[in-house]
Design a protein around this nucleic acid. Structure first.
Lengths: 355, 355
DNA sequence: TTGAAAGCGCTAACAA
DNA sequence: TTGTTAGCGCTTTCAA
């Protein structure tokens, strides 16, 4: 609460019916306390010097009435809005909630409040959400990815507020950027797999053309394979939600089609875990005959019968670093663009081992 | 976008540097187009009659300049804010993201936009978030649970906007309510378990005193056990994140302590799945010797070696119904409180079977 | 179909 | 320490 002493009094409407009332204004508190609007405003914002007596009277009146300030009017008058727009593609995949937790944690120590927008990996939706959010004149924007429409770029660079693009660094940022290189992540994983001695490698991932980060990982992956004179022995793309069932199903299909594969690379841990469960069910020798790897280091999965090889996407750190950049610049006169490149690490788990 | 014809033109700032500029106003568009501010406003909102020529000139100017309207000023002048405050305890447990998806889907067809607040199951944080959100004068509030501070109740009932409390119906709502009865859910699951012939039942769940819904399920559960002359043979509460590892660990501890249990009831599917994996690892006869059940019907888990018995909490439907109530009442003069009680169903899966 | 004036509820800047 | 005045950028209302 902006003022710790202030909590509206309890007052219930008549039961079973919500009453329609004019919202209270500063003027109501002013009249109830016999103090000018301006001084009431000072008390409620803890600004300027106010005598203890006046302060108490105002607080008492505000509490008794149940006054909640109108931030719309306040924001218009002060041209300060303590909101940070956070724009992400999805809430359902266990990836972004952690980023958001990182952001929240940092912003908790500031006046700033995150406000979420979800695009469902749809560029038009992204433009729309961006437009809506910017029209509230937030103090900053944190937005996933680097790929956006020309209109989106224009809105961001004209907004006159700090912008942090997160989760990916392979591209041309509008302003600041925090994340990992997914191209590099793909290369790193490929190198691990090759070094371990696997040669017949299959890939499974989402079909979504808008998941640019998954696409970059695959590009990096195949590039490193190519350097070693290898290419993907099989690949398959899916649509719809990620889950164990999807991973099982695709894995069964791929192994049926290409039985001599010795490694399966999945674009995320959830389908990877599904594939792993399938392989264990079938009694396949993992990682001897067949290795597997996913991406994201989803913590929830610790506790599977066998730990899937994966790679940390540094989600929480990304959220924290992005929030820090916004918090630093929110009240500054001029902005400086920062680049924070985090380095993901391969966790071989139990499904990727030297053969 | 509020006006489909309008998309700001692409314009990049000088590379590597964000420029600080005064945001554009209606007046800038007015001057650039030679049309009065009032008429510009009409065009951009699609309100009132404007000639096609004027309309085009205005749109062209707005697009060329990259104008983004200031909703703060608009909201203050019109006292209309097309935001719906959505207040939930957590994003990390796969439960609320689905509720949010339901809400978003319904609101997509309206002018309304959801804005998220997260309380981390902390009542003080809830009051704070509520206060912050209400100070933006949203068109409605959707908030998880029925338990809140007196201050929270007061803020909600005095806000003069439709309020929908979701996920739970066991209690005294401020206004409308949509959800399932968790008490009943607990009773139903207990009955299934008893009917199937299990007698030595252990419970594992979160220690969080603020997870009222989990607590109600446990109360209903033990109540039905008691009616059958049974009581819990063992129970354990944990803190911290839910995941497979936590479920394994607790299950191991409980079975070590109370080896003659014939059923394990978990307060959520994630720890339940961890427990299930542990039991399968140990080669226990599930559901013959030992039955298991969770709660939530997390879709992600389809594809485990064996389907955990669970109960649907109707998350998506809850979100949709709540959003519908807000959408209906947002522009109405008076509100009516609605009660939507959904009935959860037990899915026995492979871990709860007649003995 | 268009425009002019007033004011939404608050805060910045200044005056007392 | 307190109060007064003048807007913030838009929409409502009314007049042309």
């Amino acid at each position: 609460m902006s003022n710790d002493d202030f909590t509206p009094a309890a007052r219930r409407g008549s039961p079973g019916q919500t009453e329609q009332r004019r919202p209270l204004t500063l003027r109501d508190v002013s009249e109830a306390s016999g103090v000018s609007e301006m001084t009431v405003s000072r008390v409620l914002r803890n600004r300027g010097d106010v005598s203890a007596g006046t302060r108490e009277r105002v607080l008492a009146a505000a509490k008794r009435l149940g006054y909640v300030p109108n931030k719309i009017a306040g924001a218009l008058a002060s041209s300060r809005v303590n909101l940070v727009a956070v724009i992400i593609p999805s809430l359902s995949n266990m990836v972004f909630p952690e980023v958001i937790n990182g952001i929240s944690k940092i912003l908790e120590d500031t006046e700033l409040q995150p406000v979420l927008g979800v695009t469902h990996y749809n560029p038009e939706q992204e433009d729309k959400v961006l437009y809506e959010m910017l029209s509230w004149r937030p103090s900053g924007v944190i937005i996933a990815g680097l790929e956006r429409s020309e209109a989106g770029r224009a809105m961001l660079s004209n907004a006159g507020i700090p912008v942090v693009e997160i989760m990916d660094v392979d591209g041309d940022p509008v302003d600041s950027v925090v994340g990992i290189s997914h191209h590099r992540a793909g290369r790193m994983m490929a190198q691990e797999i090759i070094d371990a001695g696997y040669r017949r490698i299959g890939f499974m991932g989402t079909k979504m053309p808008q998941d640019h980060r998954a696409k970059k990982r695959l590009e990096g992956f195949t590039e490193t394979l190519a350097k070693a004179g290898l290419e993907l022995a099989d690949q398959e793309f899916y649509e719809g939600g990620s889950g164990f069932a999807k991973g099982r199903e695709m894995t069964e299909a791929m192994l049926g089609r290409t039985p001599d594969l010795d490694f399966l690379y999945y674009s995320n841990d959830l389908i990877g875990a599904g594939g792993l469960l399938y392989c264990l069910d079938k009694g396949l020798d993992v990682p001897g005959t067949l290795g597997l790897a996913g991406f994201n280091a989803i913590e929830l999965l610790d506790g599977l019968p066998c730990r899937l090889a994966t790679m940390d996407s540094c989600r929480r750190e990304v959220g924290e670093a992005a929030a820090r950049i916004i918090a630093e610049q929110a009240n500054a006169d001029s902005f400086t663009s920062e680049q924070v490149v985090l380095i993901p690490r391969v966790t071989p788990g139990d499904t990727l081992r030297q053969r």
